Lab assay of single mutants.
Amino acid sequence: MKVIFLKDVKGKGKKGEIKNVADGYARNFLFKQGLAIEATPANLKELE
Rank of each mutant, 00 (worst) to 15 (best):
F31D: 01
K32H: 08
L35T: 02
K10H: 12
K14N: 09
L6Q: 03
L30Y: 04
K19T: 07
N28L: 11
K2H: 09
E48M: 15
K19M: 10
P41M: 10
A42K: 11
E17T: 06
A39M: 07
Y25N: 05
L47N: 08
D8K: 04
D8Y: 08
E46R: 14
E46D: 11
G11E: 05
D23W: 14
Q33M: 15
G13A: 11
A22E: 14
I4A: 02
F31V: 07
N43M: 12
K15L: 09
L44D: 04
I18W: 03
F5E: 01
R27E: 07
G16F: 10
G11V: 01
Q33N: 15
E48T: 13
E48F: 14
L44I: 14
M1Y: 08
K10A: 14
A26G: 05
A36H: 00
D8W: 07
K7S: 10
K2I: 13
E46M: 15
K10F: 12
L44G: 04
A36G: 04
E46P: 06
Q33E: 11
L30A: 01
L30G: 00
A26V: 09
D23G: 13
G16Q: 02
E46V: 13
P41I: 11
N20G: 07
D23R: 14
Y25G: 04
Y25H: 06
K15S: 07
D23Q: 14
A42F: 09
G16A: 03
A42N: 12
A26T: 08
N20H: 14
M1T: 12
G13L: 02
N28M: 11
L44K: 06
T40V: 05
R27G: 02
R27S: 06
F31A: 02
K19A: 10
A39F: 12
I4W: 03
F29M: 08
K14E: 07
G11H: 07
T40N: 08
N28G: 10
I4D: 00
N28S: 10
K15W: 04
V3P: 00
L44P: 03
K10R: 14
V3K: 00
A26K: 03
L30V: 01
K15I: 09
K10I: 13
K32F: 07
L47M: 12
E48V: 12
V9Q: 02
K32T: 11
L44T: 07
T40H: 06
F29K: 07
A22G: 10
A26Q: 06
F5I: 01
M1D: 03
F5P: 01
K12F: 15
K45R: 13
F29I: 12
L6A: 02
G24K: 13
I4S: 01
G16K: 02
G11F: 08
A42Y: 08
L47G: 07
R27V: 11
A42Q: 13
L6T: 06
F5M: 04
G16D: 05
G34L: 07
M1A: 05
E17I: 03
G11T: 05
E46H: 13
L30K: 01
L47P: 06
K32Q: 10
F29Y: 14
A22M: 10
Y25T: 05
K2N: 10
N43K: 10
G11R: 05
E48R: 12
M1N: 04
K15H: 05
P41K: 10
K2E: 08
K45V: 09
Q33Y: 15
R27M: 10
V21M: 09
D23V: 15
R27Q: 09
V21K: 01
I18P: 01
G16S: 04
K12Q: 15
K19W: 07
N28Y: 14
L35A: 04
A36W: 01
F29N: 06
G34N: 09
I4H: 01
L47V: 10
A39N: 02
A42M: 11
G34E: 05
G24A: 14
G13F: 14
G24L: 12
E17S: 05
A26Y: 13
Y25L: 08
I37L: 10
K15G: 03
F31P: 01
G13H: 11
N43S: 09
M1I: 15
V3L: 04
A26R: 02
T40E: 04
T40A: 04
N28P: 00
K45F: 12
Y25F: 10
A42T: 11
E17Q: 11
G24T: 14
K15A: 13
A36V: 06
L35P: 00
K45S: 11
A26S: 05
Q33P: 01
I4N: 01
G16Y: 08
L47Y: 15
V3H: 01
K15M: 10
K10S: 10
K7M: 12
Y25S: 05
L35G: 02
N20F: 15
L30D: 00
L44Q: 06
E48K: 11
D8I: 03
D8L: 04
E38P: 14
M1H: 05
K7V: 14
I37H: 04
V21N: 00
I18D: 01
G24V: 12
F31Y: 05
K10W: 14
L47A: 08
I4K: 04
I4V: 09
A42L: 11
E38L: 10
N20P: 07
F5W: 03
Y25D: 06
G24R: 13
K14S: 10
E17G: 02
K2D: 09
K15E: 07
A22K: 11
G13P: 00
L30M: 03
K12P: 01
G11Y: 08
T40D: 05
K19Y: 07
L6I: 11
K19V: 13
A36I: 06
V21D: 01
K7F: 13
G13R: 00
Y25R: 06
A22S: 15
M1E: 03
F31H: 00
L47Q: 09
L30Q: 00
G24Y: 14
G13E: 02
A22Y: 10
Y25K: 06
D8V: 03
V3M: 03
F29S: 06
I18Q: 05
K10D: 12
A36P: 01
K2Q: 11
A22T: 13
A26F: 14
A36K: 00
K45W: 10
V3A: 02
N20W: 15
K19G: 07
L6N: 01
G34V: 03
D23F: 14
K12Y: 15
K19H: 09
G13T: 02
Q33V: 09
F31N: 01
K32V: 14
L47K: 07
A36S: 01
E38D: 04
I37A: 07
K2P: 08
P41R: 09
A36L: 02
F31R: 01
I4T: 02
G13K: 00
